[in-house]
Design a protein around this nucleic acid. Structure first.
Length: 532
RNA sequence: GGCCCCAUCGUCUAGCGGUUAGGACGCCGGCCUCUCACGUCGGUAACAGGGGUUCAAGUCCCCUUGGGGUCACCA
């Protein structure tokens, strides 16, 4: 069982699923042996200690580039549950190596959103731990050192190709209908020469030297072996010209250094896993076990996306989904409890968890079923608990203090308050009464809808959701549309409040929050698009 | 398009060679009831197609079809 098999053992897939169970580490490490390259790269030299002795460590590695994603919570749940089941450790690592896409408010939102779901992590940037730092931007030296190792071993090389040259190559390849990919122009250049140019400060990247031929076999614990020809891979960039690593390098180096034993991530990563396996090979490290969960889907089965589905965890929080319901629902996606049980707690899920119960078809994220589950959880609460829950949500002083400045001048008696602020507590609005007014003179509804969507995109690109920012973006948008601002802002007012009269628009949007506002704008856009 | 993954009701799923193919959401209807909702009872609805293997296939194999993912100095 400890033999370093140099031939891939192909088992019928039916035998793989049992192997993938919440098995003992020794069996798992046996299946890890299947992760290797065939001729001529099958020589598995000097693997470190067998993983049977290694305690289970898993991680979630979100990138702080936007709003906290429901897919992050989904994958976090499975990592968490597996870790708890195994008595292992759950690590949160922030993958912020893309300085151009980084968003300042995003990291904190990830913490907040994950905490809201009820999931917690044992190690992470905010809580520390023995394998820190847990923020990749603070680990640059690790990556540089490891790239140095690869360079020295001849497993990587410096590439001085310009973006322009790369673009030209790409166009050429398209014209010849060849697979796009780096043409390996710098691959066989003299390394010493490369080192010299680099030391003179010449901009360059470091690329992985992918074997020119042979198959790479990746063992996915949920599917069995996946074979990919190395001809499908190009010489992936490992270190960008800004000195920071790409995902591929960073994730391999960090998973190794952080002693991650099981990589549980989304299916979209399957096709780049061969690169990762190659990197483990190049370093002489034992790879972790890979589990690729199916992707959450829109109702049209495409990968879940914000254009077609609310995708921010904060949206679900703001419309009053209970965190227990959210977790329970995510647990129903691609996994089943057994015994027809659909409502279960986190603790019950941990207890019942097994990889065999994962189904591989991509589950459609169905808001109706989530809502049904949520109803069940609400009904479970006694009145005191429900009161607390509702107050913890939006029926509280903090929120009221934000709403009141917008309505105080508009009420004469207290009994007018609740009717006046109803839409500050609603999710979706009913536009039937105002639909006739939701239009811009001489502009087709379809085009009005499109313009609205453009505004949503512009708002999404910004950090935070403060009124001045909204006003600035909205005014620029109005100008771009060429519409009369009177018409444009009435349109927004109707979309956001469902009423022709409301407090100042931008403040209202800000108080409502980004998620509810975005949703209403999108709903209105869709409605107008349909109306033609 | 190349490569890879996937495939049971509209949706989430159970099924791991022999089942009247089960449950749940949604939808429809009955009951409960001052209304509505809840609850409850019932109904609607699926093995993508074609070849094999087998006494026997939703279950195993192959092909087709369909869907998805991926092909960046993004993760």
């Amino acid at each position: 069982m400890r033999t370093r098999a140099s031939v891939t053992i192909r088992l019928p897939s039916s035998v793989h699923r049992p192997v993938a169970s919440t098995t003992t580490p020794s069996i798992e490490s046996a299946s890890a042996r299947a992760n290797h390259i065939l001729e001529p790269y099958h020589v598995l030299q000097g693997r470190p200690m067998p993983s049977s002795a290694r305690p289970v460590r898993v991680r979630i590695a979100p990138s702080p580039t936007g709003d906290p994603h429901v897919g992050t919570a989904y994958i976090a749940l499975f990592n968490y549950v597996f870790a708890k089941k195994q008595g292992g450790t759950f690590v949160l690592r922030i993958e912020d190596t893309d300085q151009s896409r980084a968003r300042g408010d995003s990291e904190q939102m990830i913490y907040d959103a994950l905490h809201w779901t009820g999931l917690s992590w044992d190690e992470g940037p905010d809580v520390g731990g023995p394998f820190g730092p847990y923020r990749q931007s603070e680990r640059a030296q690790h990556y540089k050192d490891h790239v140095g190792i690869l360079l020295a071993k001849g497993e990587a090389y410096r590439c001085f190709c310009t973006a322009e040259r790369l673009a030209k190559v790409r166009i050429q390849q398209q014209a010849e209908k060849k697979n796009p990919g780096y043409d390996r122009h710098c691959r066989d250049a003299d390394p010493a020469e490369g080192a010299r140019r680099a030391s003179e400060g010449e901009a360059h990247v470091v690329r992985m030297k992918v074997p020119l031929s042979g198959d790479i076999v990746v063992k996915d614990e949920l599917r069995g072996p996946v074979t990919i020809s190395s001809e499908q891979l190009d010489d992936q960039v490992l270190l960008k010209s800004d000195g920071l690593p790409t995902y591929h390098l960073a994730n391999v180096v960090d998973d190794h250094l952080m002693e991650i034993t099981h990589v549980i991530r989304a299916e979209e990563w399957i096709s780049s896993t061969p690169k990762h396996v190659l990197l483990y090979q190049a370093f002489g490290w034992e790879p972790p076990l890979f589990f690729h969960m199916p992707l959450l889907r829109n109702s049209d089965k495409s990968k879940i996306s914000k254009r077609k589905n609310p995708v921010s965890i904060n949206y679900y929080r703001d419309i009053g989904i209970l965190p227990q319901a959210m977790l329970n629902f995510l647990g129903l996606m691609g996994w089943s409890f057994g015994d027809d049980k659909e409502k279960f707690t986190l603790a019950e899920m941990i207890d019942a968890f097994a990889w065999e119960k994962v189904s591989l078809g991509g589950p459609v994220f169905n808001l109706e079923k989530l809502t049904w589950l949520n109803e069940k959880y609400i009904h479970d609460l006694d009145y005191s608990q429900l009161a607390d829950t509702v107050m913890g949500w939006r029926l509280n002083k903090d929120y009221l203090v934000k709403v009141l400045p917008l309505v105080r001048e508009r009420i004469k008696k207290l009994d007018e308050l609740v009717p006046a602020i109803e839409y500050f507590f609603s999710g979706d609005l009913d536009y039937t009464a105002v639909l006739a007014d939701m239009k811009v003179p001489d502009v087709a509804g379809k085009d009005v809808g499109k313009a609205l969507l453009e505004l949503v995109e512009k708002l999404e690109a910004k950090e935070g959701f403060a009124a001045p920012m909204i006003e600035e973006v909205s005014r620029q948008w109005v100008e771009a549309t060429g519409w009369k601002s009177k018409n444009a802002f009435m349109l927004l007012r109707l979309a956001v409040t469902g009423r022709k009269a409301s407090p100042p628009l931008f403040e209202t949007m800000s108080v409502l929050g980004k998620e509810i506002t975005r949703r209403r704008l999108r709903s209105a856009a869709e409605l107008l698009g349909k109306a033609g």
